[in-house]
Nucleic acid binder design. Sequence first.
DNA 1: TTCAAATATGATCCAATGCGTATATAGTTT
DNA 2: AAACTATATACGCATTGGATCATATTTGAA
Lengths: 108, 108
Amino acid sequence: MRSIPDEGLELIARRFAVLAEPMRLRLLHALFEGEKNVSQLVEFTGGTQANVSRHLQTLTGSGILGRRKEGLLVFYSIADPSIYHLCDLVCGSLEKQLTKQAGVFSHH
Amino acid sequence: MRSIPDEGLELIARRFAVLAEPMRLRLLHALFEGEKNVSQLVEFTGGTQANVSRHLQTLTGSGILGRRKEGLLVFYSIADPSIYHLCDLVCGSLEKQLTKQAGVFSHH
DNA sequence: TTCAAATATGATCCAATGCGTATATAGTTT
DNA sequence: AAACTATATACGCATTGGATCATATTTGAA
């Protein structure tokens, strides 16, 4: 079998880790609608400005988000389209698991 | 826009977190070949028995792996087929990012 | 140039998690 | 039952990462 070098594994793990925070998922979910600036995201998520800014930095640093400055405002947007599919996959898998029990997602 | 309840976000984050460890990815990679018992996985990954066992427990607890006892041996296998696609997506996305620089995956 | 608004960053604290060692449990063999 | 093998778990330690508060930086306006 083809083995994966440690560097590669750590890169993959790192990518998953970036997605492993509820606040970052909330930010991604907000940005699925289209690009938004930091203030909008702060209001949207209900987080503090500092915290939102940090998470945006994490997401941007990993290449998932893109950044665009316009005067005082900074707009963020999805830069890696694979994220959509990734989230769909996980949601789908979890829905399957959950419909075998009680349904958190059941009220479509 | 449809918002996702906090419970849901935490479930999704949790799923990503489970995939965010190199050793667990190594175990998954090993199991992509087919089911293996703990000793085989210990040898395969080069980890300690205790550590491998713990990570297998994490993966099983999240529904990603299945567990089958056969005498003294315990066999683990991929239970959630979406994992294949999930890893492919991430790898593909990372390859794209990396080919824009130096190539860790470049020697196919 | 001074002020105000939007965003980023530094310092600190705290909780979560991974690893290693040692030990416990379960199943098998004699 | 005793001894042995395979696997799981308890404990302690070290590291990491997120949240908050305060402050810095950037940019536009007066």
